[in-house]
């Protein structure tokens, strides 16, 4: 079996290497990939969309359908993960654990015992062995605002530098996941509840598709942002630029929410009680 697999892999590799003899040389400016539509993008994207970053212009304008459905794919993946893992039926645990924030003393409340849920000086924990690490918590708290600010910068500056909705959304999602790792899932869920992540991932896709729909209602083609000129009060070229920005915000919200919701489901195996 293993020998057969090795043979298959080697045959596959050899066929591909044989195929590369017909491939364009490295860095060849007249390769087939660089000759059909790509010269049009390079020559005309600035005058047609007023976006200096050609990648952003192609992503959200020329290939707007593609990107919209990629966003839907990400949304669907988040949904699939939710349906595969989420557990709703939950039996009440025999005892609950609380930790006194200031001293680190852990209290065990047996069934029927009471501790006010809203007591500020106690926090609910799920397993006793999770240590309270001051250094990691403080370091992450210091870093987090800068990561989030950088994520917003990457989204907002996607027209002029490498960046855009996908990258910024992933960075923002990483910031939330870092919070969840350095604290615990329970406190992250208080900050960003599950319902909100699901609504945000749907809302991001809705912003994208809704922008396209508004263009359709204004008499242009789907995702033809030039039709937004009347609403935004700018000329059609700038309307394309602004339309791309609106769509990128939708992508960023959807990607961020899906990343966080994937983490919630995977880290707690759908139970949403204890994090890593």
């Amino acid at each position: 079996m293993k020998r057969f697999a090795l043979l298959a892999v080697l045959l596959f590799g050899a066929l591909l290497v044989y195929g590369t003899t017909d491939f364009p040389d490295w860095g060849d400016p007249s390769s087939p990939a660089a000759t059909h539509v790509s010269p049009h993008y390079i020559r005309h994207s600035l005058e047609e969309t007023a976006v200096p970053n050609i990648v952003t212009a192609v992503l959200a304008d020329y290939r707007g359908y593609d990107t919209m459905f990629e966003t839907s794919v990400i949304f669907t993946a988040g949904l699939a993960c939710f349906f595969l893992l989420r557990v709703f039926a939950r039996k009440a645990p025999d005892s609950r654990l609380y930790r006194h924030r200031a001293t680190g003393i852990t209290l065990r409340i047996e069934q029927g015992g009471r501790l006010p849920e809203g007591a500020r000086e106690f926090e609910r924990i799920d397993s006793q062995w999770v240590p309270y690490d001051l250094i990691i918590r403080t370091a992450c708290r210091l870093v987090l605002p800068f990561i989030q600010l950088f994520a917003l910068y990457v989204v907002a500056h996607g027209h002029h530098s490498p960046g855009g909705g996908f990258q910024g959304g992933v960075i923002f999602g990483a910031a939330v996941i870092l919070y969840a790792i350095s604290h615990d899932l329970r406190s992250t869920l208080q900050m960003l509840p599950e319902r909100r992540t699901v609504l945000m991932s749907a809302g991001g896709v809705l912003i994208y598709a809704g922008t396209g729909l508004i263009c359709l209602l204004l008499g242009a083609q789907f995702l033809d942002y030039a039709a937004l000129a009347g609403i935004l009060g700018v000329d059609p070229i700038m309307a394309r630029s602004h339309g791309i920005f609106i769509v990128e915000i939708g992508v960023a919200i959807a990607v961020m929410a899906v990343m966080v919701s994937l983490y919630y489901n995977l880290a707690s195996v759908g139970r949403f009680d204890e994090g890593l």
Binding site: V37, I54, V58
Partner: peptide
């Protein structure tokens, strides 16, 4: 050529999503 960059930009994020599934 910006086109392959555009295609791979979305492919990276989609690969993360499929990894999650």
């Amino acid at each position: 050529n910006p086109l392959p960059h555009v295609l791979m930009l979305t492919a990276i994020v989609v690969s993360v999503a499929t990894l999650g599934v």
